[in-house]
Design a protein around this nucleic acid. Sequence first.
DNA 1: ATACGAATTCAAGTCGACTTTAAGTCAAGT
DNA 2: ACTTGACTTAAAGTCGACTTGAATTCGTAT
Lengths: 140, 140
Amino acid sequence: MDIAEVARISGLPASTLRYYEEKGLIRSSGRVGLRRQFDTATLQRLGLIALGRRAGLSLDQIATMFSADGMNIDRDLLRAQALELDRRIQELALMRDGLLHAADCNAASHFECPKFLRLLKISTRKPRTGRIGKNFKNGD
Amino acid sequence: MDIAEVARISGLPASTLRYYEEKGLIRSSGRVGLRRQFDTATLQRLGLIALGRRAGLSLDQIATMFSADGMNIDRDLLRAQALELDRRIQELALMRDGLLHAADCNAASHFECPKFLRLLKISTRKPRTGRIGKNFKNGD
DNA sequence: ATACGAATTCAAGTCGACTTTAAGTCAAGT
DNA sequence: ACTTGACTTAAAGTCGACTTGAATTCGTAT
């Protein structure tokens, strides 16, 4: 498969695939002339990368989840990431409820509503270590 | 209150407060010489901004949620954001389950497991309009 | 009145994940 | 053989949210 086909199937631009290769997230199986060739495992790998990205992991974090040998995955790290993600989910749920409450609460100012104030307190707490999701665009 | 005190209480660096003012997210009540003075409402406003940021809104989105007059909030926008956030939560929950499954599934390759493959399909779908959370650091 | 530390402005730098551009290479079709 | 269009590289640019640096201005304590 050449880069164009991987791009077509995965929906990612060729530039991104080259960038991922540069970062060590995928590998080309060889070249025909200068042109990279990929095998189908790359598509699965890209799926996994997409999964990680959507879960809010950075490319570097995803890279460390692939163990050196190729297709295996660091299971402990995976579990840790799932836990981290779960914490984030709990937090977002709180935010969602807070936003909904703020939309419906008919106190003239939200700052008179104890529910809302409690929420503000939570949102003012420093975020935990690490970044959260980044850089998703709509590329339709 | 001068900028140093707002910084101390909110935990935000003065540079960020100036940046927020420049973006129109907060306002200083006046100056003493060159120095900005803030009132306590600013602290609440900063809480609201933190809330929005944690919910994954951009500064621009947050800015539009404050209506022109000052302390009121666009309730429809709030509801819309809550819905968007809820969609994101559903998605993240799926990702979390996927990560956990990937960690525990003992198929040598995850790509033989139908559960996992279904998840990959989902994560490969293009993200919806708009960005998701960004740029949270741990500034302890 | 003078020094000092804190605040100010404006421009430029940073970070991650890409994208874009310019200039060059090459496989394949005619 | 020659053209063409897809591919290549390296470097630079983009975006959002800040941060940093340099030069400057002031309020306050002495």
